[in-house]
Design a protein around this nucleic acid. Sequence first.
DNA 1: AGCGTATTTGAGACCGGTCTCACATGTCAA
DNA 2: TTGACATGTGAGACCGGTCTCAAATACGCT
Lengths: 371, 371
Amino acid sequence: MKRTTSKRLVTISDVAQSAGVSKATAARVLGSYGTASPVVKEKVREAARKLGYQANELARSMTTGKSKTIGVVVGDIENPYFGQAVRGISDAAHAAGFDVILSNSGEDAAKEKAAVRVLLGKRVDGLIVTPASLYETQHLHEVQRSGRPLVLLDRTIPDLAVDAVVTDDRRAAEAATRALIEAGHRRIAYISATEADDPIYRGPHQINLSTVMERIEGVVAASRAAGIEHPERYIRLGANRRGEGDKIISELLQGADRPTAILASDNVVALEVFKTLRRLGLSIPQDLSLIAFHDADWTSVTSPPITVIAQPVYDLGFESAQILIRRITGIGDAPRCRVLATTLIKRQSIGAPPELQESRAGLQKSTAQIG
Amino acid sequence: MKRTTSKRLVTISDVAQSAGVSKATAARVLGSYGTASPVVKEKVREAARKLGYQANELARSMTTGKSKTIGVVVGDIENPYFGQAVRGISDAAHAAGFDVILSNSGEDAAKEKAAVRVLLGKRVDGLIVTPASLYETQHLHEVQRSGRPLVLLDRTIPDLAVDAVVTDDRRAAEAATRALIEAGHRRIAYISATEADDPIYRGPHQINLSTVMERIEGVVAASRAAGIEHPERYIRLGANRRGEGDKIISELLQGADRPTAILASDNVVALEVFKTLRRLGLSIPQDLSLIAFHDADWTSVTSPPITVIAQPVYDLGFESAQILIRRITGIGDAPRCRVLATTLIKRQSIGAPPELQESRAGLQKSTAQIG
DNA sequence: AGCGTATTTGAGACCGGTCTCACATGTCAA
DNA sequence: TTGACATGTGAGACCGGTCTCAAATACGCT
């Protein structure tokens, strides 16, 4: 039954009255602007402390037009990839005195749109977005029109002239593919988690993420350069949904002319590959070689440890926030796309394809681990 | 050189003027309160659409006193544990029409304090905090005094009468310890990532997290019940810092009377155990048995798969947000501590201790609900 | 028609800060 | 003494919404 006595919070007028000065003067002292004599300053500070005054940032933002807050919309916070990126954003923002409002789009363009609108409504000073779609971008154009800076994270949108911070996915995919080719592979699959109408890749029109586009280009380019014909046939999409990954992978591995190597678009897919392989009784790298995007910490303790494409995810977030804040502070040069390099970390998940294996002897450490 | 023409955003007065009605009427239509005739409604909406009006939520919050925003302070977003929890919070919040402002404390009480203050300044309607310390809690009392609801996530603070959502760490630790004892272990280590002045455990005064406290109690209680003397000697703290984990683990394993089983406080520590073991040439479960808190997805694909204590992390977040929102909406019953059950998922990282290994008894898979 | 009641509408105060501007006071030079 | 100029302070407008209140209009009924 206890009814919270509607606590009216202490305002600057209360402090002013208690200190015996005008509202304007109290505001000058507590807001650290304008001038005030030392005596008055002390009086006001004392009164503020006594009353437990705490500025209403909302009111402050209202008049100044600045909220010292940046809005962030990511695909999925639960994914460690975005977790790291958000940490980078958060660190850079706080270092510059900004706060972060976070929203989750679930990789759904409609939700992203709603989130952006809400953030604009909250008058964030700028936005960082990992756009869920290359095509549904009206809301992002809206951001631009509102005059508030926008930075795209991890993905670009060609027809939108804003800053972006991405990794060099094309070259990363190329390098990974080349590594597999050098090990002797000719049938190389790329399995992506990206949403698509059909798991079988039929062409770029199915893809709505720049990263996926680039990676596919990388895989295809490296394959073509090695004289591999029709490399696209081993590309699969939509391995994100529960169960779907396992289905795609096992169908791929049990079909005729099965691939001898897999390039996984992220560590969740890599995990799926591991599980499916275990279920099918296949092992890495004897039966299948594997490279995964994203150097998640656990990839180094599996048996065998996984060769990965390490992406500077934290930096991706950190830099995007820095760039955004520079824009907010008023740097007006042309938007740029900052491309961060990736690293191929070779561990032990790459071997020769089964048909080329002759010296299989010396490599196993102890008894073959069975899952 | 293009100077952004300081875009004054469209306000409700602009819309009102354009629609030929008063500001109050336009506000009623666009804010969906009060009444307005169908004709007027249409006129106003049309004008708003034409001008691209978007409400200033700041101004709205100012007058209503509600911001429809909840503040969240977690230890480390980068940690998948918190990632999942934040996702839960985010989902519950959005479902109820609330937004989330996220802050990172880095498990540092001072930063947490600052973050809480900022969030209060932004006039969030309520707060969810994973308190970094049992003792530095002035800022949390401050929240209470400000009259805004607070929910503690994952950890409790005994002298603070607020809602909390936690897992039953005591019983979880007990169950895990018992499982190890049943497998024949008598020398069981608990390695915690919690910050501490000294890695050697000397007593509760070193601990400033309720979870850690409870887990230690659980381990000790189960050990005592099995007649194990001085179980505390295998407790180690501070395995979080880079390199520190490896040092603690290898010293523990190379010392005299070394433990035959380890209980790891989270999956990061478990990872460290894996790495150190590999470096020392030891294997699981032949040389050491392992149980880890938190069922991170990768724990099922290591060799061997790790037995874990699965915590309903997403639910933890989801429920805490729900409880908070119920409080915001005005339910005034006494604060409660909601305790969620954990599950011991038995995989294959538990074996008999080396000295008892003769019959490599059946390592069966099973799960058991603990709470 | 005339009255009571319900519905629409507008004027203006208000939220809690910032900011402009005018005025008061102090300092110093001529 | 007076004027020029810096400094400190207060009154009050303002940001963009909401909300109260009273006036205006519409509606229902005798």
